[in-house]
Computed example of a mutant assay.
Amino acid sequence: MKEKDAWSWYETKYELAEIILNKLKLYKENYNKNGYSLPIWILNEEDKKESYSEQDEIKLKIQWNKELDIMINSFSQILNYTLQFDENLEYNEEKIQQGLNKFAKYYLHFWD
């Protein structure tokens, strides 16, 4: 086994971050064009209702986009640190972890 291959596992988080970042961006774009589901999964149980007004739906979709942006920013920061250095993009481990936690929390809802 070549020495480079022996250490390829060391880059796993960057390889995964690149794949996930691209998929999250594509998901957000498609959700905003063609998404039909109402993202009530971002609500606490006590905030859920039987029905939602058009204004409620707009607010939920805006909030879902904000949650997606936090996740996207998290993976962007991870990649920026090693692959595409951009001085304007911070590297904040607390914000990265916040985005990773949201990704894990909402993972099962990436279908529409």
Rank of each mutant, 00 (worst) to 15 (best):
K23T: 06
W7V: 03
M1A: 10
F110S: 04
W64R: 10
K102G: 00
F75W: 05
E45F: 11
K33I: 08
I70T: 03
L79Q: 02
N34C: 08
I40Q: 05
E45N: 13
G35V: 02
Y81S: 10
Q63S: 11
K95A: 03
E57R: 14
S53L: 10
E29V: 13
Y107E: 07
E45W: 12
W41K: 11
K25G: 04
F85E: 04
E45H: 11
M71K: 03
I19T: 03
Y107I: 01
W9P: 05
A17L: 02
D69R: 06
L43H: 04
K61M: 02
I42A: 10
N34R: 11
W111H: 08
K105Q: 08
D86F: 09
Y27I: 04
E93Y: 05
A6T: 10
Y31N: 02
Y14H: 01
S76P: 00
Q98F: 12
K95L: 09
K48P: 06
N30E: 09
E3P: 07
I96G: 00
N92L: 02
I42Y: 03
E3T: 14
K2W: 13
E57M: 15
W64K: 10
L26A: 13
K95G: 04
Y91S: 01
L16F: 06
G35Q: 08
S76N: 05
D86L: 10
E29R: 11
L24K: 01
D112E: 08
Y81L: 15
E90L: 12
W7E: 03
W111K: 07
K66Y: 03
I96W: 00
L38Q: 07
Y10T: 01
K23R: 11
E50A: 14
E90Q: 13
Q63H: 09
E54K: 14
W41D: 09
S37R: 14
N92V: 02
Y36G: 14
W7C: 11
E94Q: 09
E45M: 09
N80I: 02
L83I: 08
L24N: 00
E57H: 11
Y31G: 03
E18V: 03
I72Q: 01
L83H: 10
H109F: 09
K4R: 14
M71Y: 04
L68P: 00
L79E: 00
E18Y: 15
S37G: 13
Q97H: 02
E67Y: 11
D47A: 15
S51W: 09
L16W: 05
L16G: 03
Y106A: 04
E94T: 07
S8F: 06
F85L: 08
A6M: 12
K105W: 04
N44G: 09
I58L: 15
S53H: 05
K49R: 09
W9K: 10
L21Q: 04
Q77I: 01
M71V: 05
E45K: 10
K66N: 05
N44M: 10
D5S: 12
G99H: 00
Y81F: 15
I40K: 06
L108Y: 13
